[in-house]
Simulated assay, not measured.
Amino acid sequence: MPYVPPTHTVERSMRATLGVRTVAGVDEVGRGAWAGPVTVCAAVTGLRRPPEGLTDSKLITPKRRTKLAAVLTDWVTSYALGHASSEEIDDLGMTAALRLAAVRALEALPEQPDAVILDGKHNYLGGPWTVRTVIKGDQSCVAVAAASVIAKVHRDGAMAELGAEYTPFAFADNAGYPSPVHRAALEEHGPTALHRLSWSYLDTMPRWQHLKKVREDGDTGEQLGFDF
């Protein structure tokens, strides 16, 4: 599939129809992981031409992604990161945890945006911002793509650092996501302080099932069906 660069089409439309000035692109990483936080980046880019090769972070090789993130952090008008910990995910459920992380990111921006472009089809953010959801916005919208890359590189780096403390789990390789090595370490050692204890992986590990947290609303994030 040929590379199609993201554009400012959605942002221009929001400016024209809603009269907003500052639009932030928002994307998350870590929603499907077994361990570690969910991380959200909010990025404001203006209407400048984006760096070459910018697209959804999942479509870029790790080496290229790291280099691109270094360029983007200087190129964007502003950006900020927000996190919700595994404990907050267990206590609140993924929907509320995503919102918490996104609010933390948006409120950390030096200038508050008038509107937000949110990757996906579910508006987990809500007010006070005007929100427009865009399926595959991390491929089509410049600000969302930039947020996608920055968030991914930042969280992967943080999980790699933690990997030195939790060597058997190979967080430097899997960033807390499911993998054969990760599963084997869980079965042998049990979950760490970084693991989400409301996740269904514990259902398949009889030795550690007693540690599972069960929410009354059943919201672990695994059933949300987000189209990210």
Score class of each variant (00 low, 15 high):
A143C: 12
E87L: 11
F228Q: 05
K152L: 07
E87R: 13
A185E: 06
T66R: 14
H83Y: 13
R99S: 04
M205T: 07
W208S: 06
D227I: 15
H83C: 09
H122C: 06
L197Q: 09
L68I: 11
Y124D: 00
K152Y: 04
G36K: 00
V142F: 08
H122P: 04
K213G: 08
R207S: 13
D114T: 06
G126E: 14
A101Y: 06
G120P: 05
A105P: 05
E28D: 05
R99I: 04
D27Y: 01
E88V: 05
E187Q: 08
N123D: 15
R196Y: 03
D27P: 01
R12P: 15
T22M: 14
A24H: 03
A185P: 09
G32N: 06
M159G: 09
T39M: 14
P110W: 00
T167H: 13
A147R: 08
P50Q: 03
L106R: 02
L59K: 15
A96S: 08
R21A: 14
A184N: 10
E165M: 13
D217W: 10
S13F: 08
V44P: 06
A80P: 15
A175E: 00
E107A: 10
W208M: 05
A42Q: 03
P37V: 09
A151E: 03
L98I: 01
S57P: 02
D156A: 07
V40Q: 05
R12Y: 10
P191V: 13
W208F: 11
T167Y: 14
G163V: 09
S198L: 03
K136A: 12
F228P: 01
W208L: 10
L186G: 07
L68H: 04
G82D: 02
D219T: 10
H189P: 10
P191N: 12
P178Q: 08
P50G: 03
R31G: 01
R104E: 02
T66I: 12
A16V: 01
F171T: 07
W199K: 03
W75C: 00
L202T: 01
P128Y: 13
A185G: 12
G157W: 00
Y124N: 03
V181Y: 12
L109T: 10
V144W: 01
V149C: 10
Q139A: 11
E222D: 06
T45P: 00
R132C: 12
I117H: 05
L54W: 04
T9H: 15
D56Q: 01
S200G: 07
V26C: 08
R64A: 15
R132L: 13
P113E: 10
R207Q: 13
G32Y: 01
E88T: 04
M14K: 02
W199Y: 13
G126C: 11
D27V: 02
P50T: 03
T39C: 12
H154E: 15
R64V: 11
H182N: 04
L54K: 09
H189F: 14
L162M: 15
T95F: 14
A164V: 15
G46R: 11
R64C: 08
G157Y: 02
R15L: 02
G127K: 11
E111C: 11
P6H: 08
S85N: 01
L18H: 15
A43R: 10
